[in-house]
Every structure is written in structure tokens, then in C-alpha cells.
């Protein structure tokens, strides 16, 4: 194992010993070097079996790529957070839109801008036929105030929508005598007057035909009155214009009052 050069001289005993240790050290170190080399070879070969993925340059490149991707990932994550916030905002806006639509529908129903259907009553009123001599024929006619009272009665009985001869009654609708005819929504209507109302049919019926009520009085007067409950009545929309020449909505607290 060690270098043994025969030098019989006794004076060189120490030198020989030194040489032995030198050889031993070099041998051991070269052994270690050999082990390191082969281990490295093995590892390199293993890398090669991965397609050389782990060569140092490759490692550096991948590290760089990883860093870039991580940065990108971070950016995308913040983008995602932004997008999610926006999405939730949009959802809120959508909710607001839905709320607004509901509000609008309600307002349209209330204002008479849309046709409505539902259970209710149909009340047909016509002029009396029996004309007894000596009696004022005027009493046999249906007057504007008759209709007005009937409509008022219907409203107080909980009618949600009323029409007279397909003229929807809205907030500004008038029922007014105009010579020989009656005006509703500035349109002439003639007998027979068909009043349709949506509401609880029972309530509407009983409200009209209550004893001593106006309907009874009309019957007594000889007018032809027919009250009929109906399961499904359709009331048309107000088809005139909504004109507000003098009115402007009052804005309170930045919100329009509906």
C-alpha cells in the first residue's frame, strides 16, 4: 500500500517514515477523489435519465423560470382578487337591477301602464228600459256620478284595478258627464257600462251589494245592473299618455321617490 523504496541507511529512517505518510495521504485523498468522481458520475447519469433536466445550467434556467412564473402567479392572483371583487360588485349591481325591475313592475301595475289579470267582478250597468209615464226619464239613465260611486265602492272594497268599458282607471282618470255621454280618460263611453275590477271577488261583491248600498239604490231606481263574480278578469292597460306638464319628482336624499 505504501511506497517502500529500500534505503537501508538508518539516518534516513525518519525520511522514509515521512515518505510513507506522504504516500498514504495522497493515496487516501485520491481514493476519496475517486469516490467523489464516481458518485458524481452516477448522479450525472441519473440526471441524464431525466433528460438532463438537472444540469446546473438547466437548474439555473429552471430557477429563473420558476421565479418568473411565481411573479406571474402572484400578479394573476391579485388580478383574480380584483376580478372577484368586480364580479361581486356586478352581482350587487345585478341585484340592484332586479330590485329596480321589481320596483318598476310594481310602479307600472300601480300606474296602470300594464294590463292586469286576476279574480274579480264584472259589473254591467245599463239604462233602465221601463219608462213609466210621468216619471223623469233622467232617473232611468246611468249618470257619471253613478259610475263614480260604484268605482269608489269597488276601491273601498279593495279593488286593485278597475276599468270601465276597457278604459283603465288611473290616478288622473276622470268620470265626467259630457252631454249625452260620459268621458273616462277623455274617451266617450256609452251604455252598457261594463265595469271590471280585480280584487277579492267576495269582498267586491259584498261591498257593492250591501243592503242599503248604492247598487241596491240603482236597482231600485230601475237601472239594469248585473254583478258577476269572475275567476279571471283581464283589465287592459291605460293606453293614453302620461303627461306631467307641471310636476317634477321630488328628490330626497339623492334617491328618486317612487
Amino acid at each position: 500500500m505504501a511506497k517502500e523504496i529500500e534505503t537501508p541507511s538508518s539516518a534516513t529512517e525518519q525520511k522514509k517514515k515521512k515518505k510513507f505518510w506522504a504516500g498514504a495521504s495522497l493515496a487516501v485523498v485520491s481514493l476519496i477523489l475517486g469516490i467523489m468522481l464516481s458518485v458524481q458520475f452516477k448522479t450525472a447519469e441519473e440526471n441524464e435519465s431525466y433528460g438532463g433536466y438537472f444540469r446546473t445550467s438547466r437548474v439555473e434556467m429552471l430557477t429563473e423560470q420558476l421565479q418568473v412564473l411565481q411573479e406571474e402567479n402572484q400578479k394573476l392572483q391579485s388580478d383574480l382578487a380584483d376580478a372577484q371583487t368586480k364580479l361581486s360588485n356586478v352581482r350587487d349591481e345585478n341585484q340592484a337591477l332586479v330590485d329596480m325591475k321589481e320596483e318598476l313592475e310594481l310602479a307600472q301595475m300601480g300606474s296602470g301602464a300594464v294590463a292586469l289579470r286576476g279574480p274579480g267582478v264584472i259589473l254591467t250597468v245599463s239604462d233602465g228600459q221601463k219608462i213609466t209615464p210621468g216619471e223623469d226619464p233622467n232617473l232611468q239613465l246611468v249618470h257619471d256620478d253613478d259610475l263614480l260611486r260604484l268605482c269608489n265602492e269597488l276601491k273601498s272594497s279593495g279593488a286593485e284595478a278597475i276599468s270601465i268599458n276597457n278604459e283603465r282607471l288611473i290616478a288622473t282618470s276622470e268620470i265626467r258627464c259630457a252631454g249625452t255621454t260620459i268621458l273616462v280618460n277623455w274617451k266617450r263611453i256609452t251604455p252598457p257600462f261594463i265595469i271590471m275590477a280585480i280584487g277579492d271577488p267576495e269582498m267586491l261583491e259584498s261591498g257593492l251589494s250591501i243592503k242599503g248600498g248604492y247598487l241596491e239604490a240603482m236597482r231600485y231606481a230601475g237601472l239594469q245592473v248585473n254583478l258577476q263574480r269572475i275567476e279571471d278578469v283581464e283589465i287592459p292597460a291605460y293606453n293614453g299618455p302620461f303627461q306631467f306638464e307641471y310636476s317634477t319628482p321630488v328628490v330626497a336624499g339623492g334617491e328618486e321617490e317612487l
Binding site: 485520491s30 481514493l31 476519496i32 477523489l33 475517486g34 469516490i35 467523489m36 468522481l37 464516481s38 458518485v39
Partner: peptide, 10 residues
């Protein structure tokens, strides 16, 4: 020794 080391390492 180098060759021996390589063999051992392998």
C-alpha cells in the same frame, strides 16, 4: 487508488 475509489463509489 483512484480507480479503486471509483469502483467503490459505483
Amino acid at each position: 487508488c483512484l480507480v479503486l475509489g471509483i469502483i467503490i463509489g459505483l
